[in-house]
Design a binder for these strands. Structure first.
Lengths: 134, 134
DNA sequence: ACTCTTGACAAGAATAATTCTAATTTGATA
DNA sequence: TATCAAATTAGAATTATTCTTGTCAAGAGT
């Protein structure tokens, strides 16, 4: 948390609240999740602040913006390189830290300069499997 | 195209136009792209029809809904298993058909039943690289 | 040929997520 | 502590998508 002073971020109470909520969070929350949670302690919190803060954090590489969920963006404070496993029913997302060799052949590369990759695994989580076979 | 008769789809002119546009299309178009293109030949085409048709095609596994682009869904008529490479600048998407070994360890699996996976490669395409280094 | 049923279409309203605007306030620094 | 750029706020605006409602068309059975 201390580290944010160094990257030219003004440390406002709102930002500290958002950072505090994100720190160590494994839920991959959406902007709304964050807004709801932080609003409890901070009733004047605005949605704009949540989005603004997430955007500046993203620019600085402090959070990842996930596009796994078709309906909304979700955010990941875990900035170590990793992949994701998502439950197709409840949209729960968990981190996968295994290493995979994802070299891409010259012909596949199509002239692109490759700068990264990300694997999405799809599945059904234990809770949803139990809930009902369907 | 013939094959759609078999899957219980009523073949209306609108659907044929959409199917015709999608067939062999490598652009991974958005609903709007499809709407615009098909509207030219079909001025009364409605957005609802585009979305409805895409949804029924998706249900039947005839198109994939891609969540790679944070701003909108994009659709892929290539239903062979494959991965994608996206240009971070212009959002161009190209198909990658290489095979990767993406076994997931029991501990990573976290009790999920795995049903699929998808790799997103990120990069800068040739055109964008030339356009300006930035 | 007539009627029924069903599925598809169109237009626009409604919704949901996100971004923008403009006015105000605040944190960091001199 | 005065200053000022940056941050916050509320709400409007925008964008993508879904929903609603009325209409229409094709095929099934009479």
């Amino acid at each position: 948390m201390e580290k944010y002073k160094d990257i030219g971020l003004k440390l406002t109470p709102q930002r500290l609240a958002i950072l505090g909520y994100l720190e160590g969070n494994k839920e991959h929350p959406s902007a709304e999740d964050i807004y709801k949670a932080v609003s409890k302690k901070f009733p004047t919190m605005s949605f704009a602040t949540v989005y603004n803060t997430l955007e500046t954090l993203r620019e600085r590489g402090e959070v990842l913006e996930l596009t796994i969920d078709p309906n909304k963006k979700r955010f990941d404070p875990n900035t170590k390189f990793h992949h994701h496993l998502i439950c197709l029913k409840c949209k729960k997302i968990i981190d996968i830290h295994s290493d995979y060799n994802l070299d891409i052949s010259k012909s596949d590369r199509a002239g692109f300069e490759i700068v990264g990759n990300h694997i999405e695994f799809y599945g059904i989580c234990q809770k949803c499997k139990k809930a009902h076979g369907s």
